[in-house]
C-alpha cells in the first residue's frame, strides 16, 4: 500500500480485504509469506494447522481472541502482563517454527 490518507487508503484496504493483524491471525499468516515465501492459501493452511483450527476461523475474532490469549502470542486489547512485542514474537517463532530476525538477535544477546 502507498500514499493516501490513513482512513481512505490503508484502513479502507484493511477493512475490505485484510485479515486484521493481531486482532485475528493476519500477522501469523504474514510471517509465513515473509519467511517461507508462502502464497496466501498455503500460508493460511499452515497457520491453521499450527493453531489446530479451521482456515475459516483464522479471521474469526471470537475464536482468535481466545486462541491468542491462550497461546499468549499477543492480543489486540491491553491485558496487563500479556505477551507483547519481542516476547510475543519469540512465542510466535516457536509456534510457527520460523526464524524471526529480531528474536534471534535477542537470543544471541542472551546467549541462548
Amino acid at each position: 500500500m502507498g500514499t493516501g490518507d490513513i482512513f481512505g487508503m490503508p484502513t479502507a484496504h484493511v477493512l475490505a480485504s485484510a485479515m486484521g493483524g493481531i486482532r485475528t491471525a493476519g500477522d501469523l499468516v504474514a510471517w509465513m509469506q515473509m519467511t517461507r515465501k508462502m502464497k496466501i492459501d498455503e500460508a493460511k493452511t499452515y497457520v491453521a494447522d499450527k493453531l489446530g483450527i479451521d482456515v475459516i476461523a483464522l479471521t474469526d475474532e471470537e475464536i482468535m481472541r481466545q486462541v491468542r490469549e491462550d497461546l499468549d502470542i499477543g492480543i489486540i486489547t491491553s491485558v496487563s502482563g500479556s505477551a507483547k512485542g519481542i516476547v510475543a514474537k519469540w512465542k510466535i517463532a516457536e509456534l510457527l517454527d520460523i526464524e524471526i530476525n529480531s528474536v534471534n538477535l535477542l537470543k544471541s544477546k542472551l546467549g541462548i
Binding site: 499468516v29 509469506q33 475459516i56
Partner: peptide, 8 residues
C-alpha cells in the same frame, strides 16, 4: 469471509 489476504 475466508478470502482475506494480508497487507504490507
Amino acid at each position: 469471509p475466508g478470502e482475506e489476504v494480508i497487507v504490507t
